[in-house]
Write a protein that binds this DNA or RNA. Structure first.
Lengths: 195, 195
DNA sequence: ACTACATTGTAGTCGCTGTCTACTTTGTAG
DNA sequence: CTACAAAGTAGACAGCGACTACAATGTAGT
């Protein structure tokens, strides 16, 4: 059992991919995507500068993985919101609040999730996004069948709903709208969707 | 009248700031913000690598200027849409279409305009954004007074409207929604705002 | 238990970038 | 005409992403 440099860390990290994602997520939250450097993460974790390459062949691959994970986290946040008490209308309100809360508390992550980079091979991201979008679609279907939501193609309505929420989060994140307005803005949006 | 290196370009460019912005805008459209390098732009224009610094002290300053210009261009696009024929409802529809068209044809620019980078000194950007937002607010006021738009605080309603449009553009730009759906999505959104 | 091989780490290098500093050329106001 | 401000150049530096060659470790097959 030979140990490396300072005789404390094993040659193989064992969980480098996970460690990288965790460190990257923290860096993303605290300093933004532009400040994320693979070499910084490697130093922070204590591996060589080239080690991350085994798990993320390129910096963009790491950012994509972050975005993918972001959609999974968003999905679980929405799921939690749907577990609350109250009727469908209350659920809609809860989900709306939860979405915007998530997207404003993780502003840089939200940017990554909806970035418009030239990305030909982003199937993984789209699959990850399908989870929260599907969940929202189900809620819309339920709302329509109960008559609390406007009719029409549930896919379209769900998409417009998420778009509105993500747009509102963007306004706050870019400092165009003030965070204090968020409650009122959400209420205005809510009134448009719920009959 | 001494000339420089290849005896063709004068020592002073004369319009370097404008030239940089133009080249950057093209690069932004064709290759995305990540690929924008100050040194590339300098080479393309034919000045030294340090010359851009006189006009944009940092790369981020150039990106901010691009975003600022983006809001000005957006405002003029909206203005054009408002000059069309038809009543207020038609104007609302035209503005909605124009917004989403602008934000999808200039996807990377839209990202810059609504980015959530830690930006303490972004007053310039906010001032630039005030133009299109103010224009939208006027339209909302007109729509409300004519009874074609839902009531409530016009600032809030205008903000929700732009948020919805920007959100829809984000969905398309990130390939979550397909461009072909845009028409239907816009119609769904339109039906929510116009009584 | 041994051994071949895939996996996952290390070290070093390369070109490129953004930023900074010192210097030079040009425009311009007094 | 002359001093100074404005706007360019050249060179240096550290840091980064990406690539390569090599080393250590886990593991599957005999």
């Amino acid at each position: 059992m030979i140990r490396r440099v300072s005789d404390d860390r094993p040659y193989h990290h064992g969980n480098l991919r996970t460690a990288l994602l965790a460190a990257a997520e923290r860096g993303l939250r605290e300093r933004g995507a532009d400040e994320l450097a693979l070499r910084d993460l490697a130093r922070e974790i204590g591996v060589s500068h080239a080690a991350p390459r085994r798990h993320f062949p390129t910096r963009q691959a790491l950012l994509d993985a972050l975005a993918e994970d972001g959609f999974a986290r968003l999905d679980s946040v929405l799921l939690t919101a749907l577990e609350g008490t109250g009727g469908t209308a209350a659920h809609v309100r809860a989900v709306m609040t939860a979405y915007v809360r998530f997207a404003t508390e993780n502003a840089a992550l939200a940017d990554l999730m909806y970035t418009s980079k030239h990305r030909p091979g982003a199937e993984r991201l789209l699959e990850a996004a399908a989870a929260p979008f599907g969940r929202m679609r189900e809620l819309v279907l339920r709302g329509q069948s109960e008559g609390v939501l406007r009719g029409g193609d549930p896919d379209r309505l769900g998409m417009v709903l998420i778009a509105t929420l993500q747009g509102l989060a963007s306004m706050v994140n870019s400092a165009i709208a003030e965070p204090e307005q968020l409650g009122d803005l959400l209420e205005t949006a809510f009134a448009q969707f719920v009959l």
